[in-house]
Amino acid sequence: MTAMIESVANDVRVGQPIPTRNIAARVSWSWLGAIPYFAFTTLFMLIPVAYLFIGAFQNQQGEFTFANLIDLTSPNIAASYWLSIRLSFASAAIGTIAGLLLAYAVIMGGLPSWLRHAFTTFSGVASNFAGVPLAFAFIATLGRLGLVTIILKQVFGIDLYASGFTLYSFWGLALTYLYFQLPLMLLVITPAVEGLKPEWREAAQSLGANRAQYWLEVGLPVLTPSVLGCFLLLFANAFGTLATVIALTGSNFSVVPIVLFQQIRGNVLYNPNLGYAIAFGMVVIMVLSNTLYLVLRARAERWQK
């Protein structure tokens, strides 16, 4: 159909040459068409970020220096990077494993297909349900007066907060992040799990492999690049999260985005250039994890053909 239209189009054009004036007009139009987009992205994305990056390598007098980057290793700032990395790692790792298990269960677990449809639709919503309302939902659930906290205490006699748990802590945040990480994992890993060809399992079976041998030797190794890639995507996703943390903990939980947020609000570091360096560090981490994600995805696609 397409080919037909194309050949019709070509035929007509061959028989009816376009006037030269028209061609000249089109060339200039082509370039004009791209200008707004490049102008917008340059002005509102590239230049502002470049401004911060340059500032990261300058002192307050505008001279070149590495001092700001070296200051990133000072105890306070290094601690907040380390906290951010651990939190992102934990929530991404839990999200990856849980999402993979869920994908396996709903795609090839032998369950009715409406369940898979329900989880996919729900995940499309839940992966976008982040920020402030998500924090509110978890406060109402697992906060000091949250419904689950109360029920556990009154019905089962388990006092979560007496046992050291609090929602406003590392693991509380990790558990809250999971609410958008798990659905995201389900959505991004589904194509890879679907890409496991039934023939691979059958071939392994006919060669004498049992279920565990198939998964250990074929299924999981084939999935590994995709799973690692998705992990990095989840890591980056958690690393940039700010609104949920603020709504849950105020500004007390000093992950990197919070430190930067505070700095913008009131220059709490007494050195704007150190703020630029923190922003620079965040982008570097995002670039690294996203680049690695793309590399792993390319590898996975090569296998999937």
Partner: peptide, 21 residues
């Protein structure tokens, strides 16, 4: 018997080689 117990070799239309090996 299951497929893995039958000792039968099989060749598939779409090759079905394990892509990770």
């Amino acid at each position: 018997l299951t497929a893995s117990q039958r000792k039968i070799g099989m060749v598939f239309q779409a090759y079905a080689l394990f892509p990770n090996m």
